[in-house]
Amino acid sequence: MSALSIKGLTKTYKGGVEALKGIDLTVEQGDFYALLGPNGAGKSTTIGIISSLVNKTQGDVEVFGYNLDTDLVKAKQQIGLVPQEFNFNQFETVLQVVMNQAGYYGVTRKLALERAQKYLTELDLWDKRNARSRELSGGMKRRLMIARALMHEPRLLILDEPTAGVDIELRRSMWDFLQQLNEQGVTIILTTHYLEEAESLCRNIGIIDHGTIVQNTSMKALLSQLNIETFVLDINPVENDVSLSGFETRLLDDHTLEVDVEQGHELNTLFTELSKHGITVMSMRNKANRLEELFLRLVNQTR
């Protein structure tokens, strides 16, 4: 069964802005799915419609087989939403925020307290349970929204840019937490601007631009479309431009060389060529994240 099935979804806002132009999307149960797109592409509108915060114009949305038009209550019970912006009551304590949300889903107080302790502890917020939520740091607020979304133990967790403004260490601990949830069977849909995040976490990916899905495939298949990778090499200083047989090169300065490597070309060949020219490589790195390159290419094609 699909965790999420969207068919012919359109949204035209008052004033005529067409945010979604008939998108079709399927996310399988247990998937870790990335929904990417530039600002204003339609990601948040899609998430808003799935989570009942935005009225759709046309189309069908089913969550674990429950149609939003005919089985709204059951569909809502399957979804946990972590929105992009902080939307909890800033004057309530951390515990009140999560307990209220559990109550709205009909979770008994006893069970809600158990879950609050579990998720706030796992997200390192239990010690802050009596602090007013406005007193929390940005990273803590993000984690509070994750804990809140889990209080009714949804089968589908939707996170709209969950790590925006979060430092690297915390971001990685959130990744670990989300991966554990996914391993426990929770289907996760994630939007993010950190493409490294999508690449390392997600198995499948959809790219949305101008209200249409421009790519919906597995991360592996998408990355295999990238036929050239650019590496930046720190080398021993050279005076003249370097020309390597079979490789496109650019000398950025006397000790930095950029090399384009086509898919199927072995890196060993590159190193052999470099050795022939007496060039010693001190270190090397990818010029850009692979997914980032593909993303820009796909989005630019539609402009």
Binding site: S52, L53, V73, K76, P83, N87, F88, Y105, R148
Partner: peptide, 10 residues
């Protein structure tokens, strides 16, 4: 926007 807590819930 915490009314959204109610709107997303059943």
């Amino acid at each position: 926007r915490n009314v959204e807590e109610l709107l997303v819930a059943p």
